[in-house]
Design a protein around this nucleic acid. Structure first.
Lengths: 338, 338
DNA sequence: CCTGGCACTCTGTCCAGCCGAGTGCCAGAG
DNA sequence: CTCTGGCACTCGGCTGGACAGAGTGCCAGG
């Protein structure tokens, strides 16, 4: 096991490297942190840390930089989450309070996170399946054409066109609308399939085909992967990545465009509490030199979606984690109010 | 006026520079294009073109590169729009045909444009004010809380929460819904303010306040600037910009994040036909080294919104213009069908 | 008006050499 | 057993000079 001082050395290395973006040497360390020992001792400690794989040298005779494993230890044991200051918290709240609808909430959240962390922000829309049905609306657009609109308690709205196999009268439509809402309103979307299973049976034979079509469109809308949406922002912050970034930035931008990749990334993160994935811990190759900090948010106790940031492994973990947590908390409040 | 040959020289310079990304010299030009004259002659022509401001040298004794003015002349006089090939057109159509709703249409369009042009794609959602009302829905969420949902003929859906000054009964709500739809359904959003002006008068005194509140929320939703949305994609293509791009890419990413800037940019472009803005012709400073190719699209004859691409001034104008035009045409078709 | 020739300019690159930061190891002190 | 100071060594990055290559402008002649 590593001695207390060696852990302190590691902490100092991470902090300095995050600050200066340059490999840190033994002498600089003793000058900037009062470790109470000489550079030579620190050198021995560094050699030990390197043996254990927590730090590495870019070249012989350069300072050390933390490895992914080093950051991991730092995040798990050596650093806490830095809480936001009171003015920061107020600013967050004010900024989010002005939103007019869910799109606006998500858009503002993305901007806010990107600004606070100076990194790329990712915010998932509240999941349909984990939300509650507020209302299902059916509109007749043509004799055999219906628009289906789903509204959740988090304010999310989805619409789908349905081409009916047979003309569908206004009366039948109203009937279906009423029956549907009385069964599912206030219930969780996840339960909807079960709740509407036998609905066609209540209708005339003529209408059953149409009712089934409408219901199957409804169920399709709820299929995971299709129903997940997200918004990203702050990509301009990628330019602060490093000096070599033509090669670094490219795969990251590509990953960000692939919503599937991002959704998977967020999906893999733990469901409760904050998750930090460092460098190679990310399954997607393009993100091997980035860290992802994510957390679930929701209107009540349960998370309805996730949000987080993507940044260089060399990031200010305590600060970033603090910002992510605070934003998630306030977004949850906003959603609960709406 | 420039002689025919000098225009050909300019065309050749633009083509070569776009292809190689390197300043082009007189010798290379005569080798790659059969101009029928010697390098020395071309040198004289180049000197003339430089005097007129169409080309420039990065340094003394380097080849020439086109200026913004040079590209302008190229686009206006020397190059046409390269039509898409039949297979390309089929691919576009197939790709867009799979969309399930408007968000999906826009998302697919962005991806498609980005892939075809290998540049950053920008697609504006169909403008509310230029669309036609398909339906206005009102949902009672609480005694004094109403959700307003607008649906356009282009498939766009907007929702807003309305806090009513007084409780509003189901009957009144149904009444308002019916009256509202009978007045505005099928009409253009731009006409809505005029059409609903006197609506409160038809209601009981008790309900007038609520009706007015609902209507003013409806009108606010239609205010330009708020109602415009857009989607961007293909930012990873920015990495192909140039070798120096830490500085180049940054302001572009920032501009892309500022939706206001982009909307203004698209708004300034001519309403009909394709618009090409080259380098400094763009009012926004961050985009001074990029060109923007945009065109309106719509379900019928009239444009309901715009789409386009943002790329380096050194871009393949004929090909880009061809792709943008073709995509706009097919998106229009898709919207007309839905 | 076009062409071939010529002198000139400038950039990018390559190489050598130097400096500085940082390391590893060792012997000695506490 | 741990810490410290000293010392030799390594290596990357910067500097300066030299060089080659590409391209230009100009001029005299066809």
């Amino acid at each position: 096991m590593l001695s207390e001082r060696r852990l302190q050395v590691l902490r100092a290395i991470v902090q300095d490297y995050v600050g200066t973006e340059e490999p840190v040497g033994s002498k600089a360390l003793t000058e900037r942190h009062s470790l109470g020992v000489s550079p030579a001792t620190v050198r021995n400690d560094m050699a030990a840390l390197e043996d254990e794989g927590f730090i590495a040298q870019p070249h012989t005779s350069a300072g050390r930089i933390p490895t992914d494993k080093g950051y991991r230890l730092f995040v798990d044991k050596l650093a806490g989450v830095k809480p936001m200051s009171a003015p920061e918290r107020r600013a967050i709240q004010n900024f989010l309070d002005g939103a007019v609808d869910l799109d606006d909430v998500v858009a503002r959240t993305v901007r806010l996170l990107a600004q606070l962390t100076r990194q790329v922000a990712v915010v998932q829309y509240p999941s349909l399946t984990r939300s509650t049905v507020r209302h299902v609306e059916l509109l007749s657009l043509a004799p055999a054409r219906v628009m289906l609109v789903l509204i959740t308690d988090t304010g999310r709205v989805e619409q789908r066109m349905v081409d009916c196999p047979a003309p569908f009268g206004e009366a039948s439509l109203a009937d279906l609308r009423a029956r549907l809402n009385s069964r599912v309103a206030g219930r969780r979307f996840a339960d909807v399939p079960r709740l509407v299973e036998d609905l066609p049976e209540a209708f005339d034979v003529d209408d059953r085909g149409t009712v089934s079509t409408v219901l199957s469109t409804l169920l399709e809308t709820l299929v995971e992967e299709n129903e997940e949406r997200l918004m990203i922002g702050g990509t301009a912050n990628l330019t602060r990545f490093g000096h070599d970034f033509p090669l670094t930035i490219r795969p990251v931008l590509e990953a960000l465009e692939e919503q599937v990749v991002l959704l998977k990334l967020l999906g893999e993160a733990g469901d409760s509490g904050m998750t930090v994935r460092i460098g190679h811990e990310n399954a997607y190759e393009g993100l091997n030199s980035t860290s992802v900090v994510s957390v679930g948010y929701g209107s009540g106790g349960e998370a309805v979606a996730k949000l987080g940031v993507v940044g260089p492994t060399r990031m200010d973990y305590p600060g970033t984690m603090g910002a992510v947590r605070a934003v998630a908390r306030y977004v949850g409040q906003i959603l609960a109010e709406s």
